[in-house]
């Protein structure tokens, strides 16, 4: 099924969890936040969040700022 990861369309297996997807992309679990369809998913829920068709996942990280 198709989802979007940081605006990139990606083909994934159904019933994939957010945690497994991010591990496949070597995304570190610390220093990063994830939102699905503009809803923030706490780290504690990554392993139990099953992705759905057309989900839009956005990842955020800390950068320099005042």
């Amino acid at each position: 099924m198709r989802i979007k990861l940081n605006n990139q369309t990606v083909q994934i297996d159904p019933r994939l969890t957010l945690q497994i997807l991010l591990r496949e992309y070597h995304v570190p679990e610390t220093g990063l936040a994830a939102a699905i369809n503009n809803r923030v998913i706490p780290h504690s829920s990554w392993s139990s969040t099953v992705l759905s068709e057309h989900d839009e996942i956005t990842l955020f990280q800390a950068i320099a700022g005042g």
Partner: peptide
């Protein structure tokens, strides 16, 4: 110390401020 947030760039490994 303050920091900002931005969309993570999965392609580019930018210098991690942390």
């Amino acid at each position: 110390v303050t920091v900002a947030l931005k969309r993570a760039d999965l392609q580019q490994k930018s210098d991690n401020i942390l």
